[in-house]
């Protein structure tokens, strides 16, 4: 099989992946509307991975890493970039083959390129999540994180989810043969990634490193922390804890922590304590979510199994 004559534009890469996974039964979600550091943190992954209920979804998630900003001057580093996230629960037996199919769909021929599954055990201490898997290499470049979730929020999962995280900019740079992210073709007719995002990187980098008011960030962090705990203590119309809004506040607190960190406002000694606070909030949400799932008090998206656990309750 030959490579397609014209490599995919950035947006076509996204559209192709969405189509590919949509056809394989995934709900194609839109990005979560709270700042996150990684696509995994979207509740569609981190919370849905808990409990016994099956789930299939794919989405693009803009990811923010304030400390990685380089004012638009580094060809490989961005403080805002895109991940394409797929979660399949339970993981199908042929997940590797499905994944390789997606690479073919975007024009990477495994007979021409060197695709390798290299050990990489994933761990995210702030959300107490871990899994085993690989980083997938294409000609020596890591293009995807491939993980079998084993635990989330410090809780071992009931059913293992397969999670794929594509680094979209890298993948596109590879497919298009471009060395600088800002030179990527965003659209087929020539709008570049730089035209879309360069100015954003410049301004956001300045704000991340020099702009934000540290005291304000700190205050808001504490507000979000308190809000999360408060919401989790409240109950909804069916008597359920307000896990989802509480989790939103955790994400916000987490982003505020990243901003403080980029501002150089976190002393070494404080760092662990901040991470511990976020992890505790996250864990509280995870525990509450698992309980809800196991008791099936939340209406199922398929409306199927809502009654199953009620008798037991």
């Amino acid at each position: 099989m030959a490579e397609p004559s014209e490599p995919l534009a950035f947006q076509d890469l996204i559209l192709t992946l969405q189509k590919y996974w949509g056809e394989r039964g995934c709900a194609i979600l839109q990005p979560y509307d709270v700042e996150v550091g990684a696509g995994t943190l979207h509740p569609a992954t981190v919370l849905r991975a808990l409990g016994p209920r099956p789930w299939k979804a794919a989405y693009v998630q803009p990811s923010r890493r304030p400390g990685d900003g380089r004012y638009g001057e580094n060809p490989n580093r961005l403080q805002h970039y895109y991940q394409f996230q797929v979660i399949l629960k339970p993981n199908p037996d042929d997940l590797q083959e499905l994944y390789l199919g997606s690479l073919k769909a975007i024009g990477i021929d495994p007979k021409l390129h060197d695709i390798r599954f290299v050990e990489d055990d994933w761990e995210n201490p702030t959300v107490g999540a871990w899994g085993l898997g690989w980083e997938v290499w294409c000609d020596g470049m890591e293009v995807t994180q491939f993980t079998y979730f084993q635990g989330v929020g410090g809780i071992e999962v009931d059913v293992v989810s397969g999670e794929l995280t594509y680094g979209l900019e890298r993948l596109a740079m590879y497919v298009q043969g471009v060395d600088n992210v800002y030179d990527l073709k965003f659209t087929r007719d020539g709008t570049t990634y730089g035209e879309v995002f360069l100015e954003n990187e410049r301004q956001q980098s300045q704000a991340n490193f020099h702009g934000y008011d540290v005291e304000g960030l700190k205050r808001r962090f504490e507000d979000m922390e308190a809000e999360s705990t408060r919401l989790l203590a409240m109950t909804g119309p069916q008597g359920q804890q307000l896990v989802l809004p509480a989790y939103d506040q955790v994400l916000k607190a987490s982003h505020l922590f990243n901003l403080m960190d980029a501002r150089g406002a976190i002393a070494v000694a404080e760092r662990q304590s901040y991470i511990g606070r976020i992890r505790d909030l996250c864990k509280a949400c995870a525990v509450a979510y698992v309980e809800q799932e196991r008791e099936a008090l939340l209406p199922s998206p398929r409306g199927g199994r809502a009654g199953d656990g009620v008798e037991a309750h």
Binding site: E3, P75, N76, P110, K111, L112, H113, D114, I115, R116, C138, D139, G140, M141, Y174, D179
Partner: peptide, 25 residues
Amino acid sequence: VVVANVEASDGGRALAGGNSRVLSA
């Protein structure tokens, strides 16, 4: 020298080029 897992149909030209770009980064 990169040790690939495939004998590529183009003799490894594309994958050598790809690896070279990654190494440069």
